[in-house]
């Protein structure tokens, strides 16, 4: 088995004094898409935020590219090559599309073709037409594309992608599927938090199910599709 890019063991997280994650462990190998499935409030976003250093967390091991990131502020984690795409898009609406990409820009990493706005526009063609426009004038779907493009400007080796399909029209979700597959073909590993089973199935290699802050299931998507029990118990589809 390949050495994991991101290794998480015994991750716990807290909101104030309330514990919301219990001993979460997972490993993401280079180039794979791992779906973290679960209901709302199950702990998907919290897991991503805890890894990214955005909330108080505790772990036996939290490593990215073999280096502990537990004590690092989120900007240092991002600079190591771990990108984060938040659930609520969090676009800088006062800035133009181009400036949004500029905020995400980080020096290229060796062994990878660096991302440039031009290269990104080939994956997200509708962003090209509006590169000088203020982000506040974009539709929700376009903003969702921009938030991913912005993170890619940091030339990450892996991306934490938080519910990219939430609140999007079905046609836009189809575009999103293509975008995630394009990232995968570039060799970027993705840890995807998702509720939408059909979207996750279309892009992911493996799935984990989280429930009440604990991992309940782990396996390939093919297995999950067959495991009626797991789907009914945790995903309610």
């Amino acid at each position: 088995m390949t050495a994991p890019l991101l290794a998480v063991e015994g991750l716990s997280a807290y909101y104030g004094s309330a514990q919301v994650l219990f001993d979460v462990s997972l490993a993401l190998v280079p180039g794979e898409v791992l779906a973290l499935m679960g209901r709302n409030g199950a702990g998907k976003s919290t897991t991503l935020k805890a890894i990214m250093g955005l909330i108080a967390a505790r772990a036996h091991r939290l490593e990215f590219r073999g280096r502990s990131i537990l004590d690092l502020p989120s900007y240092r984690i991002a600079r190591l090559g771990l990108g984060y795409v938040p659930e609520e898009r969090r676009i800088f609406t006062d800035l133009t599309v181009f400036e949004n990409l500029e905020v995400g820009r980080q020096p290229p990493r060796s062994g990878r073709t660096p991302w440039t706005p031009e290269r990104l526009f080939s994956i997200f063609p509708n962003l090209a037409e509006m590169s000088g426009r203020r982000a506040s004038e974009m539709s929700g779907g376009e903003q969702q594309m921009l938030t991913i493009a912005r993170t890619l400007m940091g030339n990450p080796d892996a991306v934490l992608l938080d519910e990219p399909s939430e609140g999007l029209a079905p046609v836009i979700v189809e575009l999103m599927t293509k975008a995630v597959l394009a990232m995968k073909s570039e060799g970027i590993a993705v840890l995807l938090s998702e509720q939408n089973l059909s979207f996750a199935a279309a892009v992911s290699d493996r799935a984990m199910i989280i429930e009440r802050g604990q991992i309940r299931y782990e396996g390939s998507f093919a297995e999950l599709a067959e495991s009626q029990e797991a789907r009914e118990a945790y995903l309610e589809v």
């Binding site: 029209a169 079905p170 046609v171 189809e174 059909s198 979207f199």
Partner: peptide, 12 residues
């Protein structure tokens, strides 16, 4: 179907 639902939406 074209502007909103797409294939997946239509199926749901």
């Amino acid at each position: 179907r074209e502007a909103y639902l797409g294939e997946t939406g239509a199926a749901v």
